[in-house]
Design a protein around this nucleic acid. Structure first.
Lengths: 144, 144
DNA sequence: CAGTATCCTTGGTGATACTG
DNA sequence: CAGTATCACCAAGGATACTG
């Protein structure tokens, strides 16, 4: 049985104590530990940012301009949680106007590599997926 | 500039014509093509299912029992889109009661491998992330 | 068993405005 | 420049009930 729900609330991870309120679930599948990364990789913006930072540090405004359609709110929020997870470093240069640079941490870089692999997969199988969808949909539309 | 919005609606992929209504954006970053996979990997259930199927075909009811907390609705929906993308095969044995087996397609297996790599990453860096969060949070709570 | 149909909630997201 | 704060929305997802 894979437990998928929020098995570890912020407090559980934060507190330092790993007191599991629920039954032990780690033995059967490592998936339950995956949630964090998945949520990281899953949301729209994290991956974009991880990729962008993969080619070097970027300023807040550079990221904002580079990522079409992201709001300041989401950019900040995403960067914050990336920083919180130890995946990106935030460097403030208290000039005026202030300057803030974001860069991958060493660990963040390794995740960035995984993301890159995923991107490559997506690229390699882009057409396959498109054709699969085409076939699936026409099969449903064609013979109703 | 990375375009992230829904650049290709279902219809665009489905129709077979790749008439891009928007400006050409593929040159700058391959990210825009990634959305499909990301959405696949990103949502709660697809990854769980891909992993489960990685160890062999499973019946609907097996998946349902194996994945704690998933509703029939979401299980069906997720399996359908996985099938639509050509990542899993659905085999109906029209006995009574009916029996339906799900298995990874060859291509689905390769994505499953990527997912497995991600899982490994998550496992390897689980503690690191937890401690990063701990430090980040106590830094905020400790000095308010 | 393996779904489909329906209703309803919630939180992730965008838009907007303000600030050190 | 690099954020923070607030509001408002709506689609993803859960709960429940029904069916071939």
């Amino acid at each position: 049985m894979i437990h998928n729900g929020p098995m570890a609330e912020e407090g559980t991870l934060t507190s330092g104590t790993h007191t599991d309120v629920r039954e032990p679930i780690g033995e059967e599948h490592p998936i339950c530990r995956l949630r964090d990364v998945l949520d990281r990789v899953g949301d729209k913006w994290s991956v974009l940012i991880m990729d962008l930072l993969g080619s070097g540090p970027q300023r807040y405004s550079e990221l904002h301009r580079s990522i079409d359609g992201i709001s300041q709110r989401m950019l900040t929020l995403t960067l914050r949680s990336l920083e919180r997870d130890g995946l990106v470093d935030r460097t403030v240069t208290p000039t005026s106007p202030p300057r803030v640079d974001y860069a991958l941490t060493p660990v963040g870089a390794t995740l960035s590599d995984q993301v890159a692999a995923l991107i490559r997969w997506a690229d390699d199988h882009r057409e396959y997926v498109a054709r699969s969808r085409g076939r699936y949909d026409t099969a449903r539309d064609g013979t109703p």
